[in-house]
């Protein structure tokens, strides 16, 4: 209480002294950046934190659940989110925005795709001839069968919280319903574990994945479904027989952020990382086994040309 009173007094004095320019400088209060449990996101958090710090801002990192974070941004406990994936977090993002308190801070240039796909070796070993065209799936469900799929092929989808019944309806719409079943994994970890295990055995596997991601380095091929058109999904009134659109990767911020930290917000709004940038950040950790902080420091040092322009 005393602290805020003290600040109040200070604030009034300051406002009286230099009324017009009061907004020019960023507040010293820290900008709270969430960290989630995947490498590129954590490295990018430290990268963005580093950029903010170069502007003289204070930064704080807080681990947060990938879905619950949007509510936290809305309420103001977290300031920004820098990796809002369309298909996985779109729902939470828009829910929070509808309630008020969260703003859209622009889109990264990275072209993202979130889609079912197979590891590179499935193509190389010709486990299912004709892939990545989806039609090829009709002839080789047994390649993707698992212990609990009753002889059908299995699609390993993310948790239901990501896109609900999107994949089951797509299976049905494409006429694959009697040859394939959808299994919802509990989270990304489960998908990576299955992928790693399948790779050791050279087994066929169809799983939900996205790019840019660390799997890009080892090779991952997305299945080519009939192209996405507006309104082709069941939710939008279509029959669902289409693939995923090229997705966006957005940034979100608390509504006060532009007012409290105008300089930092301006940089954040300009920030746009490409697939290459994100891939590099992830690789430093996943391939080179650096710690996340070290990776961010290295990336910032090596790529001033990319991030300096954001700050101007």
């Amino acid at each position: 209480m005393t602290k805020s009173l003290h600040k109040l007094a200070l604030g009034v004095a300051a406002a009286a002294l230099m009324a017009p320019s009061a907004w020019a400088e960023d507040s010293a209060e820290p900008i709270v950046i969430p960290t989630h449990n995947w490498s590129s996101q954590v490295v990018m958090a430290y990268v963005i934190g580093g950029i903010f710090e170069s502007l003289g801002d204070n930064v704080e990192y807080v681990p947060a659940d990938t879905q619950a974070v949007y509510e936290a941004i809305r309420i103001g406990d977290v300031t920004i989110s820098h990796e809002v994936w369309q298909s996985t977090f779109g729902a939470s993002f828009y829910n929070a925005m509808a309630k008020g308190g969260l703003i859209d801070a622009g889109t990264h240039s990275a072209a993202t795709l979130e889609e079912m796909g197979v590891p590179q070796y499935v193509i190389d070993d010709n486990l299912c001839p004709g892939l990545p065209n989806w039609e090829a799936l009709k002839d080789c469900p047994e390649v993707f069968a698992t212990a609990d799929s009753e002889g059908k092929g299995r699609w390993l989808e993310g948790p239901q919280s990501w896109h609900g019944d999107l994949m089951p309806t797509r299976l049905a719409a494409l006429g694959l319903g009697d040859k394939y079943v959808v299994k919802f994994a509990g989270g990304a970890d489960a998908i990576w574990a299955e992928l790693a295990s399948a790779k050791k055995e050279g087994r066929g596997i169809i799983t939900f994945n996205w790019t840019p991601n660390f799997t890009d380095a080892e090779g991952f091929v997305f299945i080519e479904f009939p192209p996405y058109k507006d309104g082709c999904r069941v939710a939008d009134g279509g029959d669902g027989s289409c693939g995923s659109p090229k997705g966006w990767l957005k940034k979100a911020a608390n509504y006060k952020f532009p007012k409290t930290h105008p300089a930092a917000y301006s940089a954040f709004a300009k920030m746009s990382f490409s697939s290459t940038d994100i891939g590099q950040m992830a690789a430093l950790v996943d391939i080179d086994k650096m710690s996340h902080q070290d990776a961010a420091t290295k990336w910032l040092a090596d790529h001033e040309d990319v991030w300096k322009p954001f700050t101007q």
């Binding site: 960290t35 449990n37 995947w38 490498s39 954590v42 990192y61 807080v62 681990p63 947060a64 659940d65 619950a68 990304a188 970890d189 990576w192 574990a193 790693a196 660390f214 950790v285 996943d286 996340h292």
Partner: peptide
Amino acid sequence: ASFIGAKGLGFNLLLALNQL
């Protein structure tokens, strides 16, 4: 607790698991 923001071993553990 690290799902809702506790720093430390728990969060690092989740990160490590995510990288398998």
